[in-house]
Amino acid sequence: MESISGHNAWVKGTGRPPTAPHPQVHLVGGFSLDAALYPDGSAQTGRLGGNALWAALGALAAGVRPVAHSVVGQSYPSDALSELTAAGVDVSGVRRGSSPTGLRVSYSYAADGTRTQPADPSALAVLAPEVRARFLDTTRRGEGDRDTLPTTQDLRLPDTGKNAGTAAEAPEPGFWHLGLLPLDRCTELAGHLAARGHHVQADCPARNELRAVGTGPLAQLLPHLDTFLPSTSDTEVFCPGSSPAELITGFHRLGARSVVLKCGDQGALVSEAPGATVWRIPIYPEPHAGDPTGCGDVFAGAFLAARARDRPLLDAACLGTAAASLATTAREPLDLVTVDPSEVLRRARLLRKDITAS
């Protein structure tokens, strides 16, 4: 079991983290085109988004060159994929599907900063009809259009050195993150990857599905995962009123080996194993924090980058929290391309000193 005192070498390290293409870090999920209505009445359509995109840029901000896996629509801009490639994201796992629109998400923001998704129709009434028509949202079909999400066939993976007959000739295990996906798709992908010896972590599956069916089906998913990374905004939908301690205990009972519960502006809670001490990581006090869109995905990408470098859970969670703090200053994912990984690491070191037992 990991203790809080065993990682001072990482905390005291200096210099920019190396950009590492190996072992490979893979982010699976949606690449979307978003539309947002801001409190001042301005609108932005065709904004890049999606959990896999945000997570890939979180890994990049942590100093690792990630591989993104998604399915985009016919209207997805090719120059966006070129820009990601130039920034260091491998988009060879992104294919163009048959959907004309692909995954679309809409948001509206109130004056107090609260966000509604899909966008509030009454708020959109102020827009010109041709602009309002671009506020599409496909996420209520199982919280994602299944035709825009990767399948096991898209991954096309051989067995790794853990399970292959000739380990010397087999590829090294990869590190995989599954973003918000329908429950059955997430379970299928996780089982496919775990059976081939890969390290697998996952965000919470579609929370509205869990609200309808309960948490029981998570027992089919969680044993495949090395780490489960739900958020309290997820759990409030399908386990309203449950305390963080109750949630973490419940996820372990359903088969989770380790749990990182993202708690918004309350930081994150890390449980390394059933019955282990739960550690609390505070948020980094970013003075220019704004829209939290994508922060949980950025956290996951940076967390996985640290795990791929064999960093312990607490170090990885600090790196995720640090990257998420910078994501609060981004209006869209590609703003994170300019983040210096050394700043992410600096913030993570400061957070590491403030961890407490929950």
Results as ranks from 00 to 15, higher is better:
Thr116Asn: 10
His224Tyr: 13
Gly6Pro: 00
Trp10Gln: 10
Gly267Met: 09
Gly58Glu: 02
Gly174Trp: 00
Pro17Leu: 04
Ala256Val: 01
Asp315Leu: 09
Arg156Gly: 13
Gly197Arg: 05
Leu326Cys: 03
Phe228Cys: 05
Asp112Asn: 14
Asp137Val: 04
Ala20Asn: 09
Ser42Gly: 09
Val105Cys: 13
Leu304Thr: 02
Leu261Arg: 07
Leu60Trp: 00
Ala35Gly: 03
Gly50Leu: 07
Gly290His: 09
Leu53Ala: 03
Ser3Phe: 14
Gln153Ala: 15
Phe228Tyr: 15
Arg134Gln: 14
Glu130Leu: 04
Cys204Ala: 14
Ala61Gln: 08
Arg65Cys: 07
Asp310Glu: 14
Thr151Met: 09
Glu272Ser: 15
Phe175His: 10
Leu193Val: 11
Leu81Ile: 02
Gln24Arg: 11
Arg146Glu: 13
Glu286Met: 12
Val200Cys: 08
Gly214Asp: 04
Thr235Asp: 08
Gln220Glu: 15
Val28Ile: 10
Val339Trp: 13
Ala167Glu: 10
Gly275Asp: 10
Ala52Leu: 02
Gly15Glu: 07
Val64His: 00
Ala190Phe: 01
Ala80Glu: 07
Ser233Lys: 11
Asp335Phe: 07
Pro282Cys: 05
Ser108Pro: 01
Leu81Tyr: 03
Ala302Ile: 01
Gly296Phe: 06
Pro292Ile: 07
Thr227Asn: 05
Ala302Met: 04
Ser233Trp: 09
Gly46Phe: 12
Val72Phe: 08
Leu53Arg: 02
Thr235Gly: 06
Asp40Gln: 12
Ala305Thr: 00
Lys353Phe: 03
Leu33Met: 07
